[in-house]
Amino acid sequence: MVRFILKRTGYMLVTFYIVLTLTFLSMKLLPGTPFKQAQKLTPQQLNTLKSYYGLNDPIPVQYVRYVWNFIHGDMGGSFQYGNEPVTDFLFARFPISLQLGINAMIVGTVLGILLGIVAGINRGKSLDWGSTMVAIIGVSIPSFVLAAILQFFFSVYWRIFPVAGWGGFMYQALPTLALAIGVTAQVARFMRTEMVEVLNQDYIVTAQAKGLSRATVIYKHAVRNAMIPVITIVPPMTAAVVTGSLVIENIFNIPGIGSQFVDSIVTNDYPMIMGTTELYALLYIVSLLVVDILYQLVDPRMRVTGGKA
């Protein structure tokens, strides 16, 4: 297992290096300059600025410098925020996005799995239809529409939660819910399909033939096997939710990473764009490793060590 993780970590580093290179190269292809009101600057001033940021050097030199600095934990300074180090910026804002994303994933996955189980074991009955409806609604309504609805009822009408801002549980509840509903829907649909499939397997009949109660059969034999494929979608979804909460962060005025990312793109803030992109890439790559590790934990057939087969 340790060897497997080390090997995979090696592959991950290679993947990440490729992403880093591609990000750097695509930055060089972006039109425009990072400097505001560049048209008002004289060519000399522009030139001075460019050479200050090292943008006049040949691209290979810039590239080697970027990679070298990156290895030493320096991702450069932001152009738009007075040269503030990108790393500081990410460290300050990313945890907030991460917290929100993880909240939503936990709520969404748990609800989704429960709904999926209920639907799967009641296939074709009203409970199945009910939970399928919830899933369809969850997939169909965009999170920002849901966010506005939640804000209207919970904040304006009933005044339970604050409209916007960031802080403890009270602030986190609504954005978490708004993000979680889509996750719930996807996980529920997936889980339902798997439950239906697993409940038709021969080993379920074997379990029943042992005289186990229906609850035991479902809980111990069906759910665990049905969850294996679900596990594969959750970590990449986490990466997507953590990075994709941009709209929600805007609506609830949450100082996360998402909204700043858009600003960086608009202003050609190269180090900032690269830093954020690389963070997202890293998150995704790590999530895939997590999938493989989880897979081995829940499915003995996937284990690379410990078994003879």
């Binding site: 397997q201 021969d202 080993y203 009949v205 074997t206 379990a207 042992k210 005289g211 186990l212 035991t216 111990k220 034999h221 665990r224 096997n225 294996i228 829940v298 499915d299 003995p300 057939r301």
Partner: peptide
């Protein structure tokens, strides 16, 4: 080939009953 739960140890499957 399909009558046993693939994710449960043999012993446990016998023990349940």
């Amino acid at each position: 080939m399909t009558a046993l739960n693939p994710t449960m140890k043999i012993g446990k499957q016998i023990m349940e009953g």
